[in-house]
Design a protein around this nucleic acid. Structure first.
Lengths: 271, 271
DNA sequence: ACATCGCTTTCCGGTTTGCGGAAGGCGTGC
DNA sequence: GCACGCCTTCCGCAAACCGGAAAGCGATGT
């Protein structure tokens, strides 16, 4: 008899049924109007009966719910409740909202709030622009650090060797033709960010979307999170970046003070 | 060989490992500072090795994350992302925030936003009071409908027989000594709510906390959600309820208009 | 009216794979 | 230096998960 684990461990960590159930949850979360069992089974590459069994299990705990009329499945209440715990840990989200709102009103663009989680930048909250045409990268989303204005603003607080190490470990994962593709370009941009006090994402994450970001510091002198303004490249033109950058930087500064935080001297840590 | 399912189906629906993994997720979500494996195993009544295996599975999908320094486990990024989908479906959350804020400023108390999900009232969002002493029932939480101001405000839009049916199906699930305990008391309160246009929760959910709520209508004439003001009973005294009720009702009315919704004539549906 | 299709939901036997006791390893306190 | 508590890994047994199949069910077309 052969050791099943030994040959099938490739890329498949942990308990199979649990992994599959979580996959289903992720698919449900990514869909806006819910999914039927068969469609879900297709996307997850599972047998329909298996999908159905896992869904009812998710349902019994409130993580999924099915509309009995239409047999459409959606994310359930418990998933929401549990997810909130992720944000609750960063207690500075609530106080940030007024500052985001003011930024939104100053700039007429969408204001975002993000944190670093491992090698991703997670957009935790946002205050939407009132413009009719606006780009939406919804809260809860995540972006490779190097393709995000907020991500780069946070990276700029790290010593260079750690940035290089991160890049080596995860790659730059470019998302558009304008994403940074070499570590040299990253370091040059980082240097610029340290000098100016704000970061610019020039259509590096989503084509047609520019973004200006700055760091907020915690009371312990750690970079806590970042805030940014994002808008259509057509509206957020190059000549507007400098004034917007100042506004974002100032807002970040005010939020830092409100939180009782402080930036290390000159904020540029030497290697 | 006996049919295992037949004898152990009591209270245990679905796939065992998945159910256990979700239990762990719920426990993680309920803890503020994360939990160690052994503590989690104790709370979930599982073997430590089983707990660990399930946790690493959750981790591989980003639903849990462990701090490698301290071996403390927390809710992960993916759980947050998936949970957001629950709120995204109700697209009226974002537009509601300005109205909540105005209400908060008018009343100096915490403003809440809730929806009905099955027989629970889910608090989806809130704008916190600036008072030093304030009660917190954090967003993401859920309350039996009959013990919630927002819940009762929404119930009041139902025909009486449906309210009675719901009460029969789920019970009233009182939470404090002042919670309603008879269907007669509920119907009397509901009648009062219909007459006044706002609901009052008089320490029926949490002792020492009063709450005033009103319904917001969707464009299709359905009750969409409810908003409320909640504050310490000492501050939200009986003589203040009437004026607060008017403010909440007006805010709900404005939000309804903003959403393009409309209340059915006189809003009291006959049986 | 009937047949066909596509879907959800339930059932059940074979065997995959999840379970948990035990052991290894690490840090801490006595 | 020993003992304790904790996290993590290992492995054989058998519990329970998987998925094909079939039963319902509603809609659509002939």
């Amino acid at each position: 008899m052969y050791r099943a684990k030994d040959i099938m461990m490739a890329g498949s960590e942990g308990v199979k049924s649990v992994r599959r159930a979580l996959d289903l949850l992720i698919l449900l979360g990514a869909s806006d109007d819910g999914l039927r069992v068969s469609e879900l089974a297709r996307q997850a590459e599972l047998a329909v009966s298996t999908t159905h069994r896992l869904l009812t299990t998710l349902e019994s705990q409130g993580f999924a719910q099915s509309d009995p009329e239409t047999a459409v499945w959606r994310v359930g209440r418990t998933a929401f409740t549990v997810g909130q715990a992720y944000g609750r840990r960063r207690s500075f989200i609530a106080p940030a909202l007024p500052y985001l709102k003011r930024l939104r009103d100053q700039t007429q663009e969408t204001a975002n709030f993000g944190i670093l989680d491992g090698d991703w930048l997670v957009t935790v909250s946002q205050v939407e622009s009132r413009q009719i045409v606006r780009a939406i990268s919804p809260p809860g989303g995540h972006t490779p650090v190097f393709c995000s204005g907020m991500g780069k603003a946070l990276l700029a607080t790290w010593p260079d060797p750690e940035i290089i190490a991160l890049a080596a470990r995860t790659g730059l994962r470019p998302m558009t033709p304008r994403s940074l593709t070499s570590i040299e370009a990253v370091l040059a941009d980082i240097a610029r960010i340290r000098r100016r006090g704000y970061a610019v994402d020039d259509e590096e994450h989503i084509q047609g979307l520019r973004c200006v970001a700055a760091v907020v510091w915690s009371p312990t002198g750690e970079p806590a999170c970042a805030i940014s303004i994002s808008g259509l490249a057509a509206r957020l033109a190059p000549e507007r970046l400098e004034i917007t950058g100042t506004q974002v930087r100032d807002a970040a500064h005010q939020l830092t003070e409100h939180l009782g935080g402080q930036a290390p001297d000159l904020f540029a840590r030497k290697t």
